[in-house]
Computed example of a mutant assay.
Amino acid sequence: MDFQTYHALTQLYADYAAAVDSGNWDLWPEFFTDAGSYRLQPRENHERGFPLATLSFSGKGMLKDRVYGIKETLFHDPYYQRHVVGAPLVRQAEADRFECEANYAVFRTKLSEISTVFNVGRYIDTVVRTPAGLKFASRLVVYDSEMIPNSIIYPI
């Protein structure tokens, strides 16, 4: 993988984190291909090969539906989130397709409360080159803890 491609890959990861931290939810689906998938799965299920996921969306339409839900129908205590994402580790590279992993930590701050560690784990991604730049063909978010807060509203 050449430097320019790796730089574009790290920029994709940084831009994704900035977008979901900004609260501008309309940006989120645009990081995926039209058929892209997003799954949030506990580590225990992933390691045992169990398909059960906490969230699972396939296709940009489902991602946009989640955005609609976040903005219009889900009621929850508002909070901010902040991602810290490690450099992507490229497991396999082809001309237009990359298998990557990156560790992440998400901190959550509720209004008038201190910040807390919200979710920690790793991304397991398939990234593809498109005419619009690099996009996620799939993003599997494997979180380490068996326990999660009572709800996960925003994308990790």
Rank of each mutant, 00 (worst) to 15 (best):
I152T: 05
Q11H: 08
S145T: 08
H7I: 14
R122A: 06
A17R: 04
Y154S: 01
R129Y: 03
Q11L: 10
F75L: 03
R91I: 11
E44G: 00
S151N: 05
S145W: 01
K60N: 11
G36P: 15
D15W: 00
S37A: 15
A18H: 09
S151T: 02
R97Q: 14
I70M: 08
G36R: 13
F50E: 12
Q81H: 03
H46V: 00
R122W: 12
Y104G: 02
P42Q: 00
P78G: 01
T10G: 02
E146A: 02
P155R: 03
A53G: 08
F50C: 01
Y79R: 02
F136W: 09
R43A: 00
P51N: 06
T109S: 09
V90G: 03
H76K: 01
A35T: 14
Q41L: 02
D144G: 09
S138G: 03
V85Y: 06
G69V: 04
I114K: 15
P29M: 05
A19Y: 05
V120H: 09
P155V: 06
P149W: 01
N150A: 09
S37Y: 06
D125I: 14
A93K: 02
Y123S: 06
K71F: 01
T126R: 13
S138A: 12
K71Q: 14
H83W: 06
A95C: 05
T5D: 09
H7P: 06
